[in-house]
């Protein structure tokens, strides 16, 4: 597109990126040297370079543990659920918000749905407890409602089955509004005449939302998707840990890499293995993102991320 820019002006332009490059070099790249600990048997007193190398032992150890497979599957399943659900919720909400009339209502709506983003995981966990188990572990709002309809109640905190859905619901609640703000910003940048053309053709508002707005949100969704895919191996530690904690009964469906790592670090302070798992997450993330970017470029060069 703008390859017309001359080399000299490119240089001037490059100046704009210098502070950010410096930031990344100092605060992100320099500390990355710490990753070598993934290949070491870390010992506090010996420090990094004094600690003996142990090759791939740290990696082998993680994969040899019977838990690796379950944790990997959980991590991917939960993250795919979260990503799909929050993106869908964000797009839907943004389109709906765009339909709203009346400045005040629209603003009030945006502020309100953005709010759950700020609620700390601890408070989310407590609210969930009120809903699912009530004070002192009996009943809870949901069970009261179930009983009201003559349905059997569920002992939620000892039933692993429903948890992926419960967590997904929590994520939608937390991030639906947040995502919708990003999408709404994209919607406001859609040119008016596109809609005018639609109106002349006699399209209903629903049709316009479906045929015009939705396709035009693709680039934004693609960016979010690609970024999300890169982080698919990272669980949402804060929320999951606050809610599930050390409740082993729920691990079959909720234990993810990050919660697993946190526990093993807390219990035995194993820096080497932790770093190894972190590196593994990074490498897989990198591969996933590269693939996603390549695929995306094939389909729409226009909106390519990199």
């Amino acid at each position: 597109m703008s390859t017309r820019t001359s080399v000299r002006s490119s240089l001037w332009l490059g100046l704009l990126a210098v502070p950010a490059v410096a930031f990344f070099l100092v605060f992100s790249y320099a500390p990355m040297a710490g990753l070598v600990v993934a290949f070491k048997e870390f010992d506090i007193s010996k420090g990094l370079f004094g600690s003996p190398w142990n090759g791939l032992d740290n990696f082998r150890y993680f994969f040899a543990s019977g838990d690796a497979q379950r944790i990997l599957v959980n991590t991917i399943v939960l993250n795919v659920l979260f990503l799909a659900a929050t993106l869908a919720a964000g797009v839907t909400l943004a389109i709906m918000l765009n339909e709203l009339r009346g400045r005040f209502f629209k603003r009030a709506a945006q502020s309100t749905i953005f709010f759950p983003y700020f609620v700390s995981p601890v408070v989310v966990a407590i609210m969930l407890q009120v809903l699912l188990s009530g004070p002192a572990g009996d009943g809870g709002v949901v069970n009261d409602a179930l009983a009201g309809f003559g349905l059997p109640t569920v002992s939620w905190y000892t039933e692993p089955g429903p948890w992926p859905w419960i967590l997904t619901f929590v994520k939608i609640w937390q991030l639906g509004g947040y995502m919708s703000v990003i999408f709404l910003a994209a919607i406001t940048s859609i040119p008016e005449d596109v809609y005018e053309a639609g109106q002349i053709d006699g399209a209903s508002r629903a049709q316009m939302a479906l045929r015009i707005t939705l396709p035009l949100l693709k680039p934004t969704a693609a960016v979010l998707l690609v970024l999300g895919v890169g982080r698919i191996f990272y669980g949402d530690f804060g929320t999951i840990y606050a809610i599930v904690g050390d409740n082993g009964t729920l691990f079959p469906t909720t234990d993810v890499i990050d919660t697993y790592v946190f526990r093993s670090l807390r219990q035995i302070g194993d820096f080497g293995t932790t770093a190894a798992i972190g590196l593994f997450q990074s490498v897989v993330g990198f591969v996933l993102v590269s693939t996603a970017v390549l695929i995306q470029r094939r389909y729409s060069k226009e909106t390519s991320l990199l």
């Binding site: 597109m1 703008s2 390859t3 820019t5 490119s10 332009l13 490059g14 704009l16 990126a17 210098v18 502070p19 950010a20 490059v21 990344f24 992100s28 790249y29 320099a30 500390p31 990355m32 040297a33 710490g34 990753l35 600990v37 970024l227 890169g230 982080r231 770093a275 972190g278 590196l279 997450q281 990074s282 993330g285 990198f286 993102v289 991320l305 990199l306």
Partner: peptide, 30 residues
């Protein structure tokens, strides 16, 4: 500043910069 430079699609500059900015999102020294 950084985003503008990446967004301008300067040859030999924008794409490496984008990758440069993306890597820290995945790799952290701890």
């Amino acid at each position: 500043g950084l985003s503008w430079v990446i967004a301008r699609r300067l040859p030999y500059v924008s794409r490496p910069l984008a990758i440069f900015a993306y890597i820290p999102m995945l790799f952290s020294g701890g």
